[in-house]
């Protein structure tokens, strides 16, 4: 009887060691997998500057200005007494819309989204208006555009004081 019990316990012990072993193995695999996952996110990457100085307010005429489009991906738009920095990334799938001065609209070549000069979408598949970047005037009187801060119309952020410069 006692011998049988002994055997039984041994077997149970054996299984518990085995399960500890398996749990450790699984945990080790999961740990390695998450390390590999974290490995795929570099801490630093070398992408263009997120802030730039965009001259003086007097440099801009009423309408859309494309001078910062190629370097920084920003349209400076002066309309209805406001100057703001409009992102040139289509809210649909991230293509670069073109400014069509004749039709007074931005038109995306990828799927045909159209935006008014203000950045509000009105045709095509774009789900929401273009984004605006934070814009301010430095102590030297120059315009500073900060692309790390984004203002979105559908969240009611376009009234935020740093999303435009009154002119």
């Amino acid at each position: 009887m006692s011998e049988e019990l002994q055997l039984h316990l041994n077997r149970r012990e054996f299984f518990s060691y085995l399960s500890v072993g398996w749990i450790t193995f699984t945990a080790a695999c999961a740990g390695m997998a998450s390390l590999a996952f974290r490995f795929s996110y570099p801490n630093v990457n070398f992408e263009p500057e997120m802030e730039f100085l965009a001259g003086k307010t007097s440099d801009y005429e009423e309408g859309v200005d494309e001078r910062w489009k190629n370097g920084f991906g920003v349209w400076m738009v002066k309309v209805e007494g406001k100057l703001f920095a409009l992102s040139n990334i289509c809210t649909h799938l991230g293509c670069i819309p073109n400014w069509l001065p004749a039709e007074l609209k931005f038109k995306c070549p990828c799927h045909g989204s159209g935006y008014y000069m203000t950045g509000v979408n009105f045709e095509g598949p774009a789900p929401r208006p273009l984004e605006r970047y934070a814009i301010s005037i430095t102590t030297e009187g120059l315009i500073k555009v900060d692309k790390t801060k984004i203002y979105r119309s559908e969240k009611g952020q376009w009234d935020h004081p740093s999303s435009f410069i009154p002119v």
Binding site: K69, N70, G71, G73, C95, I96, N98, C108, P109, C110
Partner: peptide, 8 residues
């Protein structure tokens, strides 16, 4: 990266 062909 600053100019998308049409159509893309």
């Amino acid at each position: 990266p600053t100019w998308a062909p049409n159509p893309a």
